[in-house]
Design a protein around this nucleic acid. Structure first.
Lengths: 234, 234
DNA sequence: ACAAAAGTGTTTTTTCTACACCCATGG
DNA sequence: CCATGGGTGTAGAAAAAACACTTTTGT
């Protein structure tokens, strides 16, 4: 914080600082968002992102992790800051700046009980209800970030189970980019990356023949990144 | 802002919210950063980004614009939010979250008097002094953003005068990417974009022959973006 | 035997890269 | 007339896009 000179002599105003989580999941070929029905005033009954005020002694990112763990029971979730929302009148109740966080979770391994006690629901992205305050804007911005980022960083894998099939991966990318991709080119591209480990198991839930399962090779990816490698999945 | 349920019953803490500006300029083939020598405690005499506390009645982005205008005398400067810095102990004096802003200015048309009265200096990026608090991190993050963003959005033009030559533009991109680019390929690439308007004037300050001046075609760019166009300058 | 999804190669087109010489001008 | 930076084209390599059929297997 670097106050401009004159600010040293004017009143410094204190505000609430909050954090809101935009939580993406992927299920049955659809991108989904975890939103919450508020059970208290203000905005009782309205849909909203989950969030919390940031406490005096915690980092903003810690506050976000705390919320995510309370809600999903998960630790080690992929999360990064989206941006701060700081319109003076964004919350009619009181001045509050919110720092939105962008999270990706494996939809199958979160704690359903926990979420249900919090009034959580998964919505498909194009079937989202109206959200309170500027939360709709946050979701829109997060979606744009996801689209851009999925291309250059292997964050898509955060949305899939640890073991996944190529067709699953493709349908995820199709959901993110909102367009159909060519099977052969997609598979070829991925294989040439050398970042998938083929397992000796098949997933037979979607076809009689079954599709081979793969794991993402995080170790190799880390190495490649260090040596100046640029991931890209169009 | 979406408080988690339990937060409604716990104390809500108020904090200072500040904004700090990472101001880039480009001059004589070098990327530069505007930093300030502090003339008051705390950190008297240390180098720092310029910033301000956000006031109760102003948007965070307004606060940043206010600072920028106070310092440079310029309005309509390219500025966008970088991200929020929210470590609990980032400022030893008191809890303060800072929202860093990323600004690009045309180095020739800012008000030199104004900046000098504020203790401002332009530093080349690889000759930066130590900065207070987490400002060094902010600069590093901003530089990464500039590198990434210059490739996909025509923000480079914000750093050049309205009329510029191709060699000038190339040297800007070379400074941003920190590598030499091929003259012919660079020029070819730009020409095929169809976003430069060639003027009937030459800049003769750098060669006897003189280089034609160009303007960026913002109108056409807007149109192309709307029709789904993707800008790219490698 | 057949439905339904998984898996496989080749050709064409486009984009990227590397590379060397002439031009215009002011001094 | 010459030093200096401005400006131009082409060929080879690499990457992206288009495209259709065979395989497996549970029912």
């Amino acid at each position: 914080m670097t106050p401009a000179l004159k600010d040293l002599y004017v009143q410094k105003d204190k505000m609430y600082v909050a954090t809101d989580c935009i939580i993406f999941g992927f299920d049955a070929g659809k991108l989904k968002l975890l939103v919450f029905k508020r059970r208290v005033e203000p905005f009782l009954g309205a849909w909203s992102l989950i969030g919390s005020f940031v406490r005096m002694e915690e980092d903003v990112s810690e506050a976000a992790k705390r919320v995510l763990t309370e809600i999903t029971g998960l630790d080690n979730v992929f999360m990064e800051q989206l941006k701060a929302y700081g319109l003076a009148n964004r919350d009619p109740g009181y001045r509050c700046v919110s720092i939105a966080q962008f999270a990706l979770i494996r939809i199958d391994d979160y704690d359903k009980e926990l979420t249900e006690t919090h009034g959580a629901h998964w919505f498909e992205l194009n079937e989202l209800p109206e959200l309170v305050l500027d939360h709709g804007q946050m979701v829109e911005d997060a979606m744009a970030r996801l689209k851009r980022k999925a291309r250059y960083q292997p964050i898509g894998f955060e949305l899939l189970p640890e073991k996944f099939t190529i067709p699953q991966l493709q349908s995820l990318y199709e959901a993110i980019y909102q367009k159909k991709l060519d099977d052969r080119n997609f598979r070829k591209k991925l294989m040439t990356l050398g970042l998938l480990i083929k397992l000796n198991e098949k997933d037979k839930t979607t076809s009689r023949r079954g599709a081979f399962l793969y794991k993402f090779d995080y170790d190799n990816y880390q190495k490649l990144v260090k040596s100046g490698y640029n991931f890209e999945i169009a």
